[in-house]
Design a protein around this nucleic acid. Structure first.
Lengths: 333, 333
DNA sequence: CTGTTAGCGCCTTCAT
DNA sequence: ATGAAGGCGCTAACAG
């Protein structure tokens, strides 16, 4: 594993000269540079990036921590982040917090392997986050809220979005609306639940315990929750799924039971994942501005890195996307 | 930015003692350890991972380089890689080669920021790859073949897969079959084209230049290619898309033109992306064993890292997934 | 233009 | 049990 020292020796110059030559500092005669480059090639020399970072005490990279690489919309979000990141000539790396929340993610959070991190994962504890903050190391939280120095939050208005969804159902004549939640430790899920309840209340409807079921934001959990909904008999006329993935699972469960969407039951999701427009029927849902969240998060990152005063909380609006999984107005039982 | 030195000073011990205490070496009296830990907390001390890696000259992480984070089946593949990687107590980080093939990706390829790299991107040149190999730094290439020391290839049998697809169409009675290719620099695309031609030939059919159109493996390119296919009049009875993404684009183009799939035209894709079973009609396609490719790649990585002799080339089989986008046997014009 | 020197933050013998 | 010293590979003054 050749080092710069070996290169310098072989080229017959000092280490610093080699360094300059390798880095294109034009303080070095082109003849010597050539010698150095030649030697480097002969030795198959590769610089050690860590040593460089250590010296420069800046990594020029920002990390994003995801719950898993399979998340429903992480690709669009990452695209947003990536666009801004590369415009700032920074590197972007992604890692998953799945399984071992304590290993990979921690290395980025606590060991200065990045200049800042964007986290979009529920399974990283507030405590760990708080421990990891420090001057000059911004943490941007997505879809999650936590107060702290150098912590910035980009959320969407989950409660309003959920309210919009529920209102939409109610205005279409539904009075019996189930809600399938996400995992208990997800703020997004909790907020969506709140929005659901607020809408019910505002419309004089009562929440029915039998119609709120727990899910986990996964397709399978949506499928299962729907199955138990069906099994327990006495179906509502509509169900609001905490996210699209679960709605997709629900669609499958209904299909298997011969229950027609939207004729027999209306369903609405949340997120507007790519799949949503391809399901059968296409899924009505609440869109999250995923790409924009990504760019905003990255923007905040660089502002914070730049040392400016940065607003700590951003709450982005959602949008109702009407497709065909709900019975339309006037089309009431 | 507190360093271990600060901690040691505050605790009133030597740096090395602090190091031991922090790392749990039980060579240190618990009373001093406590002092050190206390000091570390007070100072909000975080170790610098790079310095550690530099010292230890091993990063315990492997990197995967993707063309972009938006690819259709990266998530499944990454899951495979991730599972093996974390079982080996390594970290996994992903980065994109999009745009600046020269920046982020290069940092991992050439600057020893990872112990090995898995690459799944066409826009990284063979040359760069070859330059980056060195003893103890394995590179695993996915869906791509390159011969070199410390380079391992995991491919699927693209030509056989393509042949299977085309044979399938021919056996269903089709004689006029178009092919939409991927980008010219994609080996996968080229192999699929070869398989297509072989099948044609084996079945006594002639390749028609007007029916092979270039695409880019993106949905949009599939849409456009299909549009020009339609525009040029004289439609074939079937089209084989180089991948599913393009087939999805094609589906849209056909729908817009009122051409019914599979009644008016049969289409088949390649990859079996998640979307494939949700399109309308569900897409018949050739499945790639994505998860398995991921696990295999990671396995090879660790074998190579372990210094054993490792087979350099693996070629995985594909599988025909029959759905509803092709007219079935006997159903000929 | 080139070489010497001194760290970056950490870990690891080797003495004490 | 603890401390002093050297070095990982590189860069950045500062001299020559």
């Amino acid at each position: 594993m050749a080092t710069i020292k070996d290169v310098a020796k072989l080229a017959g110059v000092a280490v610093s000269t080699a360094s300059c030559a390798l880095n294109g500092d034009n303080k070095v005669k082109s003849s010597t540079r050539l010698k150095v480059l030649e030697a480097a090639k002969r030795l198959n020399y590769q610089k050690n990036g860590f040593a460089m970072d250590l010296k420069r005490s800046s990594t020029q990279t920002i990390a994003v921590i995801l719950e898993g690489f399979s998340g429903p919309y992480f690709s669009e979000l990452l695209k947003g982040v990536q666009d801004i990141t590369s415009a700032n000539r920074y590197s972007l790396i992604a890692c998953s917090s799945h399984g071992d929340a304590d290993s990979t993610a921690i290395r980025f959070l606590k060991e200065k392997r990045a200049d800042g991190v964007i986290v979009m994962a529920y399974n990283i504890s507030d405590e760990l986050l708080l421990e990891s903050t420090r001057e000059g190391f911004p943490i941007i939280l997505l879809n999650r809220h936590l107060r702290g120095d150098f912590i910035f939050n980009v959320t969407i208005d989950d409660v309003l979005g959920a309210k919009t969804a529920t209102d939409y159902l109610i205005q279409a004549g539904h009075k019996e609306i189930a809600f399938i939640s996400g995992p208990a430790n997800s703020q997004a899920s909790n907020h969506r639940y709140i929005g659901y309840k607020e809408s019910l209340k505002a419309n004089g409807l009562k929440e029915q315990p039998k119609w709120v079921l727990p899910g986990k934001f996964t397709r399978t959990s949506g499928y299962k929750a729907t199955k138990t909904l069906i099994l327990q008999g006495n179906l509502p006329t509509a169900v609001f799924y905490g996210n699209d993935e679960m709605a997709v699972g629900g669609l499958k469960a209904f299909e298997e039971s011969g229950i027609k969407v939207p004729d027999d039951i209306s369903i609405i999701g949340f997120d507007d994942i790519e799949l949503a427009e391809f399901t059968n029927p296409p899924l009505t849902t609440i869109r999250q501005p995923k790409y924009e969240m990504g760019t905003l998060a990255a923007h905040l990152m660089f502002q914070a890195l730049g040392g400016g005063i940065v607003t700590q909380d951003y709450n982005l609006p959602t949008e109702l996307i009407e497709r065909e999984s709900c019975r339309t107005f006037g089309d009431q039982r």
